[in-house]
Design a protein around this nucleic acid. Structure first.
Lengths: 169, 169
DNA sequence: CAAAAGTTTCATTTTTTATTGAAGTCTTTG
DNA sequence: CAAAGACTTCAATAAAAAATGAAACTTTTG
């Protein structure tokens, strides 16, 4: 039950120094790959938790809302950063952090970086057609620049598989 | 003079399809490395501009404010993405896009990624001390996890120089 | 099978981040 | 050297993103 609403922040501030460090570390880390603060908080706490925690626990300890906890866990489950474990005699789901850190990077590269590069390369094609219609002088300038950009993006794209392999290894 | 304020949006919507594609491409790209929309707009327009543009031009064509233009250019100058060129008979600064795309990535890696990794590794040290004070069982768990995280972060750190070299080459 | 527990969803509110533009500074020029 | 032009700054405002929590939904249990 969500008695946290009745006695607000009851267990707030119960975080140990270790937990706080972990939480801050992951908030900063996750922000980089576009995940919000609450997601970092949840993972940070689970990362140093000796046992699996229920959503209740996360809400109480972190002082976050029901919605944030539910949505944060959903995101973390989706990227495979967290998994639910069975706890005998307790109906609630309990969560543990998956320690395979490379999952975040992998998800980010595949779901963010790669699509963005692909989209950008498509755009370059469009832009090349559009540049054709310019008068000769401007056209030459535009084409040279587009060529450069394309080259650079392709380079980036070609690097991704290597990067993935390096991170996952 | 900033007559754009007197006749608001005078030249608004004067952007060509090519310019729009370029602007959108760079907005999306820059957002990834934490630069705001207006910065992407400015660079995107300069990227396909056959001649250098004054701040005035950017304000009029993009329909952005004086402040945004000034600050955006400052950011772009700082990362070396844009440079001012001399235009005879015109007192205003004129800007051209630096086409060395790797500069963005380089600035991002050096000013964002690297410091974040270093900070995280420092945190791990703190956390290891804190973990010492836990009771034996929890301590073992915490230490194993911290070891893993540290290992992964060091790996990431070791990759940066390579990444830089690859991007700049 | 109804009541309770656990969880999700989403419209609203709060917080954070980005943009605006008026006031101020610095620079050029007549 | 004063006035105008070019640019910068920053407090106020607007826009975007994240968090909240009540209502709805699902699952379990007596």
């Amino acid at each position: 039950m969500y008695s946290a609403a009745a006695t607000p922040g009851a267990d707030r501030g119960t975080l140990s120094a270790l937990e706080i460090e972990s939480i801050e570390l992951f908030i900063s880390f996750f922000k980089l790959i576009g995940l919000q603060k609450s997601v970092g908080e949840i993972y940070g706490l689970l990362f140093v938790a000796p046992q699996a925690l229920a959503m209740d626990d996360l809400i109480a300890r972190l002082g976050i809302s029901l919605g944030a906890a539910s949505q944060g866990l959903k995101v973390l489950r989706t990227v495979g950063a967290v998994k639910a474990v069975y706890t005998p005699g307790d109906r609630r789901d309990h969560y543990v952090a998956d320690l395979e850190l490379s999952k975040f990077a992998t998800a980010f590269i595949r779901e963010d970086l790669k699509p963005r590069l692909v989209r950008a390369l498509e755009r370059i094609d469009t832009m090349e057609s559009l540049a054709n219609k310019l008068d000769p002088e401007d056209r030459a300038t535009a084409e040279e620049r587009l060529e450069r950009l394309k080259h650079w993006l392709k380079r980036g794209e070609s690097m991704l598989p290597w990067l993935l392999k390096f991170l996952v290894k």
